[in-house]
């Protein structure tokens, strides 16, 4: 088996919140945003990450990018451990790993022209290039995402959301990285534009042999672009499976509930959304057992005791005690 390009092992991310303190010196509250996530992504493949708001999916990829460093756990990139405390290491990582963001307009500096935005990465990552070469490279990249040459001296606010997202993609890919982290890149776009951006991404992935980690809450888009999908809930992985199997036969009770609620654009199919009862646990005070235990329709007493680990269930990996038992 070939070595995966990116491996994440037992990643945890915690934040401290200081504004709910009794006294200035009392210990700050700790929010656990990501709780023990592990996965591998082979080169040239796409891992989709889905989950509802607050499930830690954005925090997870921001942690991998080093924008909010992981509290514990390992990120192995191309066979090497990434040390997020070391600036040299981090820059070496970012040379090969770039990111696109949710809000296409806010992710571009409003005071810079499109050309300046796209040449900037080259200035940092390929300082050996001359000014002229930089122009050529950035022009080629913008061309590939479909931004017309005559618009290069324009400012971001003169473009539509979809065009801004394409400029964002050009900025991320102009240095030819290996990994592109996508933080809900199409959530803010209209359906007709979404498809454009998704298609450009898959095209570029094929041409540049990119590895994508694609975070979204829209199941349809994720399914479309990903080979494998990670379903997250409260910062933990509930299920990790190939896209086809996941959508064909979701295993985990949470995945099942999530999929049953997704609207289907066909009036003939009567939706039967599964209602989840119970309250979401507070991320400042997570249950010791299964993260989904408070809302799970299939819970049993032991679910509140032990945190289930991912185990193989056919083609999928599922974190559920009940399914684990059935297997034995």
């Amino acid at each position: 088996m070939t070595q995966p390009l990116l491996s994440v092992r037992d990643l945890h991310v915690q934040f401290t919140v200081g504004n709910a303190k009794k006294w200035p010196w009392s210990p700050p509250g700790i929010v656990s945003a990501v709780n023990g996530v592990s996965f591998d992504v082979p080169r040239g493949k796409t891992l989709g990450v889905v989950g509802e708001s607050g499930c830690g999916k954005s925090t997870l990829i921001r942690a991998i990018a080093g924008l909010n460093p992981p509290t514990s756990g390992k990120v192995i990139f191309d066979g090497k451990d990434v040390n997020y405390g070391n600036k040299r290491d981090l820059n070496a990582l970012r040379r090969r790993m770039q990111m696109i963001f949710q809000d296409p307009i806010a992710s571009l500096n409003p005071r810079m022209t499109v050309r300046e935005i796209v040449t900037e990465p080259l200035r940092y990552f390929r300082p050996e290039l001359s000014e002229e070469e930089r122009r050529i490279v950035s022009r080629g990249m913008l061309d590939r995402v479909g931004i017309a040459q005559r618009n290069f001296n324009r400012y971001p606010h003169e473009f539509s959301g979809g065009q801004c997202q394409r400029i964002g993609i050009a900025r991320a890919l102009v240095t030819e990285p290996d990994v592109l982290l996508c933080d809900e890149p199409v959530s803010a776009l209209d359906v007709s534009i979404q498809a454009q951006v998704v298609n450009i991404l898959s095209e570029l992935q094929r041409d540049m042999n990119l590895t994508l980690i694609f975070v979204a809450h829209d199941l349809g888009v994720v399914r479309h672009i990903s080979e494998e999908i990670l379903v997250m809930y409260m910062g933990g992985v509930m299920e990790h499976a190939p896209a086809i199997d996941l959508f064909g036969e979701p295993q985990h009770p949470y995945t099942q509930a999530l999929f049953s609620a997704a609207p289907i654009p066909d009036p003939k199919i009567k939706m039967q959304p599964q209602m989840l009862e119970g309250e979401l646990p507070s991320p400042m005070n997570l249950p010791t057992g299964c993260l989904f235990e408070t809302r799970c329709p299939k819970r049993s007493p032991e679910c509140a005791q032990t945190r289930p680990q991912l185990h193989r269930q056919g083609p999928a990996q599922v974190a559920c005690l009940k399914l684990e038992k059935e297997l034995i």
Binding site: S160, G162, Q163, D190, V191, S192, I193, Q194, A195, Q196, V198, N199, S202, D218, L219, G220, V221, R223, H224, F247, F259, A262, I264, P265, D266, I269
Partner: peptide
């Protein structure tokens, strides 16, 4: 028609999404 084709459908998967070219 374009709008419907652009929606990734969970029920029946297709390889490329058909987008509507151009801008609003």
């Amino acid at each position: 028609r374009g709008l419907l084709r652009a929606i990734p459908n969970l029920a029946d998967p297709i390889d490329t999404l058909q987008s509507i070219p151009g801008s609003p």
